[in-house]
């Protein structure tokens, strides 16, 4: 099955090359969506052998994932994998995201970050709160609803097709997984935090919490 890794990237020149070089061994193709970085992210990704798509302005992660997914579908992907480009996810985990889709018939595999000491405190509490909200409102038991490391069968995109902006796309995909009763598997993954100031802020987290309540009405 053709497997394509999609990496949304914004100013990740320090990690992107190494990440692509390590991930190449596990997937057929890698698509990097450069979300108007001001550094050499696109050049480094291209040098490492990825297909690079460039956004002319910064549209944030959700749009970058959409562009990457549509490009992957264009290139006849059967399995699509998302991973963050900041080096927090380990490429060695990739086979664990692919195997359940091929051999065990799952539609989507979601990587749950271990909420141990490696995860910043606020992020751990925030994740816990969001997990309770998703469990209470959508009856889905997923430890980390907004993990950026996940894989899915390409034909499930029509169900997962997210409308959110920014970092909320990951959470919306999880919610849609529950809503459309997709067969999902949760696997625990290691994460390395290089930069506490990247990713979601506390305000983003509160906004996402409100959004989960709204999805209960809208979806």
């Amino acid at each position: 099955m053709k497997t394509i890794l999609v990496l949304p990237a914004y100013n990740e020149e320090n990690y992107i090359g190494k990440l692509i070089n390590e991930a190449k061994a596990y997937v057929d193709e890698i698509i990097v969506v450069d979300d108007h970085s001001s550094d050499k992210t696109a050049e480094k990704a291209a040098q490492a052998g990825a297909i690079v798509l460039k956004h002319l302005i910064n549209l944030k992660k959700a749009a970058a994932l959409k562009t990457g997914t549509e490009a992957a579908l264009e290139r006849k992907a059967e399995i699509i994998i998302f991973m963050d480009s900041d080096g927090q996810h380990l490429p060695k985990d990739l086979p664990r995201f692919i195997q359940p889709l091929i051999e065990e018939g799952y539609d989507i595999v979601i990587g749950a970050r271990k909420g141990g000491q490696t995860m910043p405190l606020f992020r751990r509490w925030g994740n816990q709160l969001l997990e309770w909200a998703a469990r209470f409102l959508f009856k889905i038991k997923i430890k980390d609803i907004q993990s950026g490391y996940r894989s899915f069968r390409a034909d499930c995109y029509k169900y997962l097709h997210w409308q959110s902006n920014g970092y909320h796309a990951d959470a919306e995909m999880t919610i849609r997984t529950g809503k459309f009763h997709l067969k999902f598997k949760q696997i625990f993954i290691e994460t390395i935090y290089h930069d506490d100031f990247k990713g979601m802020t506390v305000v983003d987290g509160l906004y996402l919490l409100a959004q989960i309540f709204l999805w209960r009405i809208k979806l």
Binding site: V33, L53, K54, H55, L56, L59, A63, E74
Partner: peptide
């Protein structure tokens, strides 16, 4: 509309390269 446009341009470049 801007998001659509920017994304379509990015994908168009993929098709050109292909």
């Amino acid at each position: 509309r801007i998001e659509q446009l920017v994304r379509e341009l990015a994908l168009k470049n993929l098709k050109v390269e292909k």
